[in-house]
Computed example of a mutant assay.
Amino acid sequence: MANIGIVIPAAGQGKRMGAGYNKQFLMLMEKPILAHTVRLFEESDFVSEIVIVGAEGDISVIKELVYYQEFHKVAAVCIGGVLRQDSVRAGVRALSPTIQRIVVHDGARPLLTLQAFHKFLEESREYSAAIMGVPIKDTVKRVDIAGKVLDTLPRDYLRAVQTPQIFDREILEEAHQQAASAGYYGTDDASLLEWMGHPVQMVEGMQENIKVTTPEDLLLAERILTQRR
């Protein structure tokens, strides 16, 4: 499982957070959110290389963070695109040619543990594409554009998708190339493979692996880290 490359899209501005700047620079337990996220992969023996993708105006800040946090596995900090999909494509291109197994992980998911990450790698090693997800707790209903309920979806077959997501490099690059040519944009990288008709395996995730999107999420993340300590 060694020689894994990590792509961390961190170009989103996080308007729902209301901070007025990239939410991944917000402080979480005295460190920027992004620092927590990168630290996990820096400490993994299975990770050879990390690429962080940021907005053009954030590149210098990210490079400073990498320097002062002593993230030696960060091989590149590159400029992202308009949408997340464009940013991931740029990050994949920035990885060394020797990297043939790629993990994509949101910069704003700082609560993934090393144990959960390594378990994910082990359980996904036989698949060319695998994603992490957790069972849905709430009842989910499908509605029309006017809000009228159409039907209730069976929870047993539903998962809330998280990152990390892992792919063989060849199939991920092919999916991004075909999507770019067709002008297709998916909600995550796995959806590009689904669009191509390529199988994607779901692997059990962890409920604490939340994406910090709102001020309430930040408070929850602080509480989770406090409990861990």
Rank of each mutant, 00 (worst) to 15 (best):
K141C: 06
I131T: 01
R93L: 02
S128V: 11
Q100A: 15
Q201L: 02
T98Y: 05
L95I: 09
R101I: 02
H176E: 06
A94C: 06
H118A: 07
D188K: 09
R223C: 06
F41Y: 12
Q24L: 14
K31C: 04
H72Q: 15
M206C: 15
K137D: 14
V104F: 00
A116G: 11
P110A: 15
R142D: 13
D168C: 09
M1K: 03
K23C: 09
T37D: 10
E216N: 13
D86V: 02
R142T: 13
A190D: 02
F25C: 12
F167C: 09
V88W: 03
A160S: 13
I62D: 13
L26N: 14
Y184G: 01
K31V: 04
R142K: 15
L153H: 08
V47R: 06
Q207N: 10
I131C: 00
I59E: 03
R125I: 13
G5K: 02
T163H: 15
Y67T: 11
F71G: 05
G20M: 12
P164K: 14
Y157T: 13
V53R: 10
M202V: 08
E43R: 09
R93P: 00
E42F: 05
G183N: 11
I136Y: 08
S181H: 03
Y127M: 10
A10F: 07
E30C: 08
I136S: 09
P97D: 10
G5V: 05
P32A: 04
Q162K: 12
I52C: 15
V134A: 02
Q178I: 01
S96W: 02
A221E: 08
V74D: 02
P154S: 10
A175I: 05
R169F: 07
K137S: 13
E126K: 15
M29P: 15
K141W: 07
R16V: 11
P199T: 00
I4P: 05
I224V: 06
D189A: 11
P135A: 08
L193Y: 00
L158V: 03
L153C: 04
G57H: 11
V53W: 05
V203R: 08
G12Y: 10
R229N: 07
A221S: 08
A182H: 01
Y68G: 13
A179I: 03
Q165Y: 12
F25H: 14
D168W: 07
V200N: 00
F41R: 12
A75Y: 13
S128R: 12
D45Q: 12
L111R: 09
A35H: 11
V92Y: 02
S124L: 01
H176A: 04
R229P: 04
E222W: 08
S128D: 12
A76Y: 03
A190G: 09
V51H: 14
I171M: 03
V134T: 05
P135I: 07
D144E: 07
S191M: 01
